[in-house]
């Protein structure tokens, strides 16, 4: 059997964990994109998506707009990107400087068992550029990933990671409770919380009672 010469998702993830910018927020797509990242680098500033194929990228776009001072990285697959390719166009129109898209290109739908993509031969960096994202590169080594993360504030950027498929599901070391993941994340970034009308609220306020400026 011929071994796939491409780096594994784990190779890239170890490089990502070492080179992750300070204050980075990381959104991961369904399947091993989330499970393996939780196994390698679980921190409250991770937001794991369990299903919702194709929606990690647009969710990260919204997060990048809401948190413009923090680098936002999203790990999305090639299959997920194809499912909502319009999101690349929206990113290209909005152009948030703090958004980095790590596009794991393994040529298959890994999370559902390794079925072939509709077109595995697409040049995703070229697609991203055509969508208005000027900084888009095809990478083939973890070292290149680490080097390109130094410019995570000069985005948006798309880094296409040529990756060997990982079909076997990784068991995450933490509970994947969606509401817990959301609350943990929002608490870690000190997001303002909603004060119920019963307590004279009806608004989002920061801890200590400071109302968020619109």
């Amino acid at each position: 059997m011929v071994k796939d010469a491409r780096p594994s998702r784990a190779d890239y993830y170890h490089a990502l964990a070492k080179a992750l910018p300070a204050d980075a927020l990381v959104v991961t797509a369904l399947g091993n994109a989330s499970y393996l990242w939780a196994a390698i680098h679980h921190v409250p500033e991770n937001f794991y998506i369990e299903d919702s194929m194709g929606l990690a990228l647009p969710l990260a776009l919204g997060l990048a707009l809401a948190q413009p001072a923090r680098p936002v990285l999203v790990v999305e697959g090639d299959g997920g990107t194809l499912m909502h390719m319009g999101a690349l166009v929206t990113v290209g129109a909005v152009r948030p400087k703090n958004l980095t898209i790590l596009l794991v290109a393994n040529g298959v739908h890994a999370a559902s068992g390794g079925q072939k993509l509709t077109n595995a031969g697409l040049d995703f960096a070229e697609l991203a550029r055509a969508a208005g994202i000027r900084r888009a590169k095809n990478l083939s080594t973890p070292n290149e990933l680490a080097a390109n993360l130094k410019s995570a504030h000069e985005g948006p950027q798309v880094l296409v990671l040529s990756t060997a498929p990982d079909i076997e599901v990784v068991r995450p070391p933490i509970a994947f409770d969606p509401v817990l993941a959301k609350q943990r994340f929002m608490s870690a970034i000190e997001a303002p919380r909603y004060i119920p009308t019963l307590f004279g609220g009806g608004r989002l306020e920061r801890e200590g009672g400071t109302q968020r400026k619109p």
């Binding site: 647009p58 969710l59 919204g62 990048a64 707009l65 809401a66 948190q67 929002m186 970034i189 997001a191």
Partner: peptide, 8 residues
């Protein structure tokens, strides 16, 4: 959802 996750 992402914007609301970010506190807006």
């Amino acid at each position: 959802c992402g914007a609301r996750l970010g506190g807006v």
